[in-house]
Computed example of a mutant assay.
Amino acid sequence: MASDLDKDTAAAHAMFRSFDGMEGVPEFVPPPQKRTLLGTARAVYPGVVVALTIALAATWLSQHYGAPVMLFGLLLGMAFHFLHEEGRCVAGIEFASKAVLRTGVALLGVRVTAEQIMSLGPQPILIVMIGVLSTIALGLFVAPRLGRSKAFGVLSGGAVGICGASAALAIASVLPRDKDSERDTILTVVTVTAMSTVCMILYPLLAARLGLSQNQAGVFLGGTIHDVAQVVGAGYSISPAVGDTATYVKLLRVAMLAPVVFAISVVLARSGAQGGKGKIPMPPLFLLGFAALVAINSMGFIPHAVGKSVSSLSSWCLVTAIAALGMKTSFKDVFAVGWRPIALMVGETVWIGGFVLLAVLFSL
């Protein structure tokens, strides 16, 4: 991203280009400047500071009013959309929406261990895997029939099936980019966060109404509610045992993020959608970081205090990234999409909820 000085230099060359042409002097093209680390930091810090400030405000509002922090970060960011149109903040906003986002997704791996997943037993693991994959397949199948792209179907299905806003951001980072990509990501995050909050309220009541056992209720809540925070809230509102089971099941869904995102990038490369010419791509660095942290944490090399701090850092990175993504999108663009994308995500939510509930009732 060009600095203000770079822009001024370009403007000066453009101003005198006509004089050079009249006198037969060839146009001077300055050699490309390799940006140093310090130069990059100077270019991005205004936008990053703004995104972090919005993240701080969103966190404060979330703690005081009990609403999802991602939703606050997104809406506040969209209110500052003008900062992304021009000026010194543009480079930092782009940096926060990409590099900071990938860092946050990678650090999610510190929340998961193989022991937690294996402690669930084979049946819950199978239920969760089928639920996640079938939800993505449903989105892929239904989206074109509602006038949306297959990419949006994968994005919405992955967000609903895996871990809400975090999955939406991770999947969006490997999907092909077009003029609607950021708008679709924003819409997915807003809708999936709102539905996750609704599920957090309704699903514990449904579990009590149906007389589910503690194990059944934990698998149901962890296998259906979209965001980790809402799963924790719903599970522990019933009992500590249900909360523990729901959290472990949810972490299994989070653990599926890396293989699913990698599978998407492989399919896109084979189809040539990203210019891969059929070659299997290297896994993105943030997915390798995610997998490495899961492995290291599973071996017990990460102390509890360190793991808690890294998990907190991951949350801050994701909220900062969603604030930056909000600044890149206008309310007008989001409202222009109509009801069909929302209907798709509601249908995906009903699908995974109904599937997991029936599987729990008849197999656990």
Rank of each mutant, 00 (worst) to 15 (best):
M1S: 14
L5M: 13
D6T: 08
D6L: 02
A12F: 13
H13E: 12
M15R: 14
F16R: 12
D20R: 13
M22F: 13
V25E: 12
F28I: 12
F28S: 11
L38M: 13
L52P: 00
I54Y: 02
A58R: 02
T59P: 01
L61C: 11
S62G: 14
Y65N: 08
G66T: 01
L74T: 14
H81V: 06
E94F: 09
A99W: 06
T103N: 09
L107K: 07
G109H: 08
G121Q: 11
G121E: 10
I130A: 15
G131W: 07
V132G: 08
A137N: 08
V142C: 10
V142D: 03
A151P: 05
G158N: 07
A159G: 15
C163D: 06
A165S: 13
A167N: 09
A167D: 09
A170Q: 02
M200I: 04
L202F: 14
L212H: 02
L221Q: 00
G222K: 02
I225G: 07
A234E: 06
P240C: 08
V242D: 04
K250A: 03
V254K: 01
A255S: 15
L257W: 03
L257V: 01
L257I: 04
L257D: 00
A258R: 03
V261N: 01
R270N: 00
A273T: 00
G275T: 03
G275W: 00
K279S: 12
I280T: 15
P281Q: 05
P283I: 06
L287K: 05
I296W: 13
P303A: 09
P303L: 08
H304Y: 13
S309R: 11
L313I: 14
L313W: 11
V319Q: 04
T320D: 06
A321D: 07
I322Y: 10
L325C: 11
D333I: 00
W339A: 15
I342H: 07
I342W: 06
V346E: 04
V356P: 03
L361R: 15
